[in-house]
Each structure stands twice: as structure tokens, then as C-alpha cells.
Design a binder for these strands. Sequence first.
DNA 1: ACTAAGATTCGC
DNA 2: CGAATCTTAGTA
Length: 198
Amino acid sequence: MLERCFFQRDPVTCARELVGCKLTCGMLSGIVVETEAYDAEGDDACHTAFRPSARAFVGGQQPGAAYVYFSYGVHWMLNVLVKAERAGFVLIRALEPLEGIDEMRKARGVHDLRQLCSGPGKLTKALGITGCHHGRDMCSDANFAFSRGPADRSINTSLRIGISRAMELPWRFYAAGNLHVSRTSPKEGRAGVEPARL
DNA sequence: ACTAAGATTCGC
DNA sequence: CGAATCTTAGTA
């Protein structure tokens, strides 16, 4: 399982390095193939910019804590709190299904592997992640944690998806060429280029 | 109390 | 392209 110090770095670094790691939830798991970084300061798209409860979460929880919220009255979104000199969240946007694929198919009601976890709302449904996971410490929970992935492949960068503020920040990271990414980039980032920092 | 907006997904 | 459906937060 990834130790606490993994999450004691800035959100952009954590988001990029979580791509390729494995997410395990009970008997189910998948490889993280897409993430986004949200910075608790100076990022108008981060929940901390307009939600006092998010600021309280950042202040009161340890790095590695799961930040799970309900979106559009329909879908759960999984984030991980990261904290160093800068704090923020990493949104988990897509997985490549690994273990428990039949369970995921049952939970999602679709058979196609590419449809199981190719979106932030899809993967929580597939793995059974809900509000009861909110606040759980992913550095000490044997049933809900990240671990090192197989090998690192090349990672691409793009603008974040589905937000209406701070749209210029290239803080989305995804495994190049992976079939389980949520969708093609709004504006394709160049592989190997360092993303902008604050 | 009432209203608005939202890091999405699916179906028409 | 629009509905689904609910939580948080701002305003009265």
C-alpha cells in the first residue's frame, strides 16, 4: 500500500504519479489510468474555493484521506487528500479493470470492459465506492488503498474535464493510448511536457 | 425556507 | 441535447 509520504507532496505531482498505481476496494481493483489535480489554494475549480466543508476537510484530515462526494444527485466522486506545503486533491477519473471484473459488470450493468470504469462516476459504481468511504484513511485501510502498479508507461497531460473555472490549467494526467481513459482530451497535451505550476 | 449550481452519465 | 436527483451553501 502507498505510504503516507506518497501523499505528502503537491497535488500535481501526486496526480501524475498516481497514474499507473493500483486502486483496491475490497475484492475489486483496477489500474489508475486517469487523474486530475486540484490545488487547495489559488485554484478556483477546487472545492476549497467555494465549499467551507472542503476547507475543513483539508485542515482536519491527514494526507491519504479519501474525499468522496455526491455529484449531480447521481454519482459519487473519489478524491484523495494530499498535503505538503501545498494541499489539494487528486480526482480519480478512470481505471483499467483488474480484479473482480464480473462483479464490476454486475454493479455497472454493462459487459464491455471499456465501459466499466472509464469515468469518475463509473468507477465508483463499479467498485461500490460511496459516501461511507468519505474520510477513510487510504494509508492504513487494508480494504481501501492504493499500491504500486506494474510498470510506468508514458503519461500525457491535458486540460481538466467538465469544469467551468480555472479551465486553463493543464492538470489532467492519463496513460497514453490506454483504452480505459474517460475520453479524448479537450485539447491534447503534448507528451513529456511539464505541466504549468502555480 | 427557497434557490442555484455542480470535478457526470445515459438515453432519446 | 436534456433529464435525473441530491447535497452544499448563500440569501431572505
